[in-house]
Amino acid sequence: MRDRVWIVAGLLLFLAVITYPFWHGVEARATSQPPVLVLPAHEKECVAPISYMRTSHMKLLLDWRNSVVRNDQRKYVSYDGKVYDMSLTGTCMKCHEKKGFCDRCHEYAGVGTPYCWNCHVDPALAEVKRP
């Protein structure tokens, strides 16, 4: 009967491991904070309603990209009638910063860094002399 303690311990360990995601979820809900995004200091409005931007900014970016590169249309009229240049670096990055905004939320959402930055230049990097 000396095995009993091992069996029980093993069972408990097994239970602990298998229910870990559940406990982790509970803990995460209790402690996690939505990311603190660095918002533009002097601007109030984004290029589209914030609810749309939050869920669909990637679609908007792809639309912009197709429109600029393939259809030669570079102007975008927003919902409140403002006209924007359709440009990732030239427009989005005028108001937002990559590190404190895009990256922070993507990290939080677990989407990684979009590969766009392989080519599109983060203005914060542009000033820095590269090795």
């Binding site: 670096t89 392989n118 080519c119 599109h120 230049v121 983060d122 542009a126 002399k129 590269r130």
Partner: peptide, 10 residues
């Protein structure tokens, strides 16, 4: 140096 006005390529 990187010129932000035009994307680099990959």
């Amino acid at each position: 140096t990187l010129n932000p006005d035009f994307p680099t390529r990959t």
